[in-house]
Amino acid sequence: MNIRKSWVIAIKDFEIFKKKKEILMSLFIFPLIMGIVFPLIILGIIEDPNLKVHELITAINTFSLLYIMLPGFIPPSLASYSIVGEKTEKTLEPLLASPITDDELLFGKIIASFLPSIFISYLSALLFMLLINIFTYDKLHYFFFPNWNMGVILLLIIPFVILLSVEVNVLISSKISDLRTASQLGALSMTPFLGLYFAFQTYLIGLNLFNLLVLILFLVFLVVTLFILTKSVFNREKILTKWD
């Protein structure tokens, strides 16, 4: 596999995403809500003079844990464009006629959706942490972030959640011929992470090192399996002929 070719495809997709308002909107709105609205809710409850410190910490942790699940909802708009978009805009045929392998094409499409999603997620998390620190300093007398939990979520969980979301969506995109359906199915595919969120939130799974290690190994397994699956179901001929 020639990574350079995958990178060329990804760069081209970045250029296109920048020019598509509907993609930009869907890319920024959700993370901005997370990064600004959540801290504003904290700001609202902090006004309550009866609020105890541990209650405030629980509230912040609840929002922090949403970062396990919510970044998974960023890639669908990008990833669903990957194959369906090329097909509906009639650019797929010359692309497939060029000397690129399925691996190079799919990997390029994954990079194209992964990098903006992770960038936006980190931007949102940065905004979230910054505003929380500003809003809660007077009450807590220390900066709540950075902390170990958020570090694990940001550096270990979010990349995998996004990668899985991207792969599921590229897979859906190479099987579904309609952009809207692909995008909706892609968003639906993230519901297992809702379960993960509640498992952490209700302490069904504790955020300890062993559990995290198991979770990360499981996510790695899923990422690799999904790439192999995506590659095996990617059928150039079917995409070109059945979607006409």
């Binding site: 020639n2 060329v8 009639k90 692309l95």
Partner: peptide, 25 residues
């Protein structure tokens, strides 16, 4: 050259060709 031109409408003429040239290494 397929029956529909298959160009990227959001990219400039130069970038369309540049992308293709890069794919061919």
């Amino acid at each position: 050259i397929p029956d529909n031109v298959g160009l990227y409408n959001e990219l400039s003429a130069y970038k369309n060709l540049d992308f293709c040239g890069k794919l061919y290494g």
